[in-house]
Design a protein around this nucleic acid. Structure first.
Length: 143
DNA sequence: GCCGGAAGCG
DNA sequence: CGCTTCCGGC
């Protein structure tokens, strides 16, 4: 029923909001205060209810696998009010992250990408309590 | 499936 | 700018 497509849209699972509101707005540069794709991916990754859809890959820090590409695309499309979203389009957006040095593809592995946390510029992002199993703590020490 | 150019949108 | 859409090519 109706398209509740506004900025106040809540994520699925309604209730536990991982990141505060200020985490979504990029105060400085973008101009848009819309959620970014990598923010959304991280949001899904730190919730157990989405482990069947997307999850951290064991062994490699920052590496994650999209187990259900269609579902991730659907959730992303719902969030951005883009019903026609699919993995083909979503992955194109992900590919643009390669140059931005936010993401990197794990070649050979299907639906597998990796965050470049060690380079991720986040002077404005003191958030990210990303804990897969307490293994990602030393992720942000580099640089 | 994955890549990246190209055009377009807000 | 940050995607979204479309698509030829591998």
């Amino acid at each position: 029923m109706k398209a509740g497509c506004s900025i106040g849209e809540k994520p699925e699972g309604g209730g536990g909001y991982p990141f505060p509101d200020w985490a979504y707005k990029t105060e400085s540069s973008p101009g848009s205060r819309q959620i970014q794709l990598w923010h959304f991916i991280l949001e899904l990754l730190q919730k157990e209810e989405f482990r069947h859809v997307i999850a951290w890959q064991q062994g490699e820090y920052g590496e994650f696998v999209i187990k259900d590409p269609d579902e991730v695309a659907r959730l992303w499309g719902r969030r951005k009010c883009k019903p026609q979203m699919n993995y083909d389009k979503l992955s194109r957006a992900l590919r643009y992250y390669y140059n931005k040095r936010i993401l990197h593809k794990t070649k050979g592995k299907r639906f597998t990408y990796k965050f470049n946390f060690n380079k991720l510029v986040m002077p404005n992002y003191p958030f990210l309590n990303v804990r897969t199993s307490g293994k990602m703590q030393s992720l942000f020490m580099g640089n």
